[in-house]
Design a protein around this nucleic acid. Structure first.
Length: 575
RNA sequence: CGGGGCGUAGCGUAGUGGCUAGCGCGCCUGCUUUGGGAGCAGGAGACCGGGAGUUCGAAUCUCCCCGCCCCGACCA
């Protein structure tokens, strides 16, 4: 039993000034967490119980799926990460340190290497596979910008699993088993979520899905089709286009277009000059980028911006992508800012990629690579040619769903889980092979599956809180019953004390507000802030033989007879 | 890393060159109160983020540093 009179807890009346999002504000105010440094938090008793409840659900579902729990150190030597090149690749996000002898160590940001090496050290036969193992461990990433309280920290707890299979079919099976276990887990946690297809990074292109918990303060943007249920990461959204069916226009024609460096100004001039009524969607925007030092051009319709994340995710092999700056224009005197067109790309030695909307055969109004001049009737395939199509334009609400063509909506969410088929990258790098039936060494194929455990606490808080406080689902609340003794009479406290003991004996967990000095109002406010799902009040009604029972979530209130309180509470909870 | 903001007691804040740094919440003592963040009285608690400088005098002005928050870039 938790007693408020002795609990290490001080609720705050005011929002902390450094907290913005609801989960952060309320977890601090309700005395669940305290900030230690940017992105680093301590858990107080109420918070740690809640955290452990979430961990318990996750562990139970992993075990039920037949995955085995292991545990690795957080403090790791450099060597394994050197073998996979991540000591270098991970860059400044890696917390690095040296021991007294000057050897390099790191605080694990993720543990692919350790898992792979553990299996390599023990198993060597195809008969040992498939295998799925997991750990729940603190991870460290020196994020450029920790934010939103415990949603994105530099220290956080993650449940990460890895599957090991001999072949792709086995990997697919292991992947599905994890997917199913994740669905069960998040349902038990009371989280609303969508499973969206995601990009697993430019190389590989293997299967990857994210579990996203919708909430306005989430930092992930995704596309959702409310009609057919299609959901995708913005990066993975596929543009639905029809082949161009219009007739081929006359030859490309350059026209004077003074002072039209922007799409809007170009549209105005064009409509006036030619008595037309075009929109930005009929103009072609040529956005120049530097991709790993190389100049490239991205073609998108003029009414859309280029989404650099989408370009980066869809342009195979590109690591660094940035917009052209003035000094880049200086290197290409033929390219006139505001009047760039794709017709002369070969001449300038610039690779051109087109958004799928720039269909073959479609005519466009675009820059003429000369100041104050544009060209019209520029036909893709005739007057200019892209090397390939690349998803580049920003996704907008109302775009067509790739599977059913209905208009999609755009929503924000917190990424609470990510599953993907890693393939053989780590097994290859670290030499994890097993002998097959023919005695031949086969590189093992792996899957990787993560759940943000500490983040899940915040995600649930985000999705369930209201104006007055937290509001936990029953399975993860720090207690199931918040019992308030409201009054000064000894009989109230004596009765409440017995009720608390009886409720615990009946298998419920109880937070008992047994403070003598606090007023009823304070206790009610605290109960609402702390967010335990059921609140029992022993107070003025006791004299008439009644206690009060409230449901935090709905606000419903009931009167129960004090002499049958335990039974009535139990039957209400079970109904 | 770019842009913006902030740093005064456990929390929220006032104080833009001048007396002993003020207020609310919380905390301690006493009395009163007791179903919606109680009242009165008394009290403890602050290297005003750090350093250097300007000045008779600095929380307040200048410079440097550190930390924190927000937007963006970034994010297995």
């Amino acid at each position: 039993m938790l007693r408020m009179s002795t609990l290490l807890l001080r609720t705050l009346r005011d929002d902390p000034s450094d907290a913005e999002v609801a989960s952060h504000r309320l977890l601090v105010r309700a005395g669940y967490v305290r900030r230690i440094a940017a992105g680093i938090y301590s858990w107080l008793p109420l918070g740690y119980i809640t955290y452990r409840n979430i961990e318990k659900v996750i562990r139970e579902e992993m075990d039920a799926a037949g995955f085995q729990e292991v545990h690795f150190p957080s403090l790791l030597p450099r060597e394994p990460y050197e073998e996979t090149n991540r000591w270098t690749e991970y860059g400044p996000d890696l917390f690095r340190l040296k021991d007294r002898k000057g050897n390099d160590y790191l605080l694990g940001p993720t543990h692919e290497e350790m898992f792979t090496l553990m299996v390599k050290g023990e198993f060597s036969s195809y008969k040992d596979l498939p295998l799925s193992i997991y750990q729940i461990q603190t991870k460290y990433r020196d994020e450029p910008r920790p934010r939103s309280g415990i949603i994105r920290g530099r220290e956080f707890v993650m449940k990460d699993s890895y599957s090991f299979d001999v072949d792709d079919a086995g990997l697919e099976l292991s992947y599905q088993r994890h997917r199913d276990a994740y669905i069960k887990t998040f349902n038990r946690l009371g989280l609303e979520f969508n499973i969206v297809s995601a990009m697993s990074g430019a190389m590989g292109g293997s299967k990857s899905e994210e579990f996203l918990a919708p909430c306005t303060t989430g930092e992930d943007t995704y596309v959702l089709c409310e009609k057919c249920g299609f959901a995708a990461n913005v990066e993975a959204m596929v543009t639905k286009v029809e082949p161009f069916s219009g007739s081929e226009p006359g030859a490309m024609e350059v026209f004077d277009s003074p002072n039209t460096p922007t799409i809007d100004s170009l549209v105005d001039l064009y409509n006036t000059k030619f008595g037309a009524s075009i929109t930005g969607a009929e103009t072609l925007k040529n956005v120049l980028l530097i991709a790993d030092g190389q100049a490239i051009a991205i073609l998108v319709p003029g009414d859309r911006e280029v989404d650099l994340k989408r370009v980066g995710a869809n342009l195979a092999g590109v690591k660094e992508l940035r917009l052209f700056e003035d000094e880049d224009f200086a290197k290409y005197p033929g390219l006139v800012k505001g009047y760039v067109g794709p017709q002369d790309a070969d001449k300038f030695g610039i690779k051109v990629y087109a958004d799928p909307r720039i269909t073959i055969g479609s005519p466009w109004i675009t820059g003429a690579n000369e100041k104050n001049k544009h060209a019209r009737f520029a036909v893709h395939g005739r007057d200019f040619k892209a090397i390939s199509f690349v998803e580049s334009a920003e996704v907008k609400a109302g775009d067509s769903c790739p599977s059913c063509s209905a208009p999609v909506v755009i929503d924000r969410a917190i990424e609470i889980g990510h599953i993907f088929q890693l393939g053989r990258k780590y097994a290859q790098a670290l030499g994890l092979t097993v002998l097959d039936q023919n005695g031949k060494a086969q590189v093992v194929t792996m899957g990787s599956y993560g759940i943000g455990v500490s983040r899940a606490v915040a995600a649930v808080a985000e999705q369930t809180h209201d104006e007055i406080g937290l509001n936990w689902p029953r399975e993860i609340a720090p207690a199931q019953i918040h019992l308030v003794a409201a009054g000064k009479d000894d009989s109230i406290f004596a009765y409440a004390e017995k009720l608390a003991i009886d409720l615990e004996a009946a298998g419920l967990t109880v937070l008992f507000d047994d403070r003598r000095e606090a007023s009823a109002g304070v206790k009610f406010k605290d109960a609402e802030l702390i967010g335990i799902p059921f609140i029992v009040i022993v107070g003025k009604g006791l004299a008439e033989g009644n206690i009060e029972f409230r449901i935090r979530n709905s606000g419903d209130k009931f009167e129960f007879a004090s002499d049958s309180a335990v039974q009535e509470i139990l039957s209400t909870l079970n109904s």
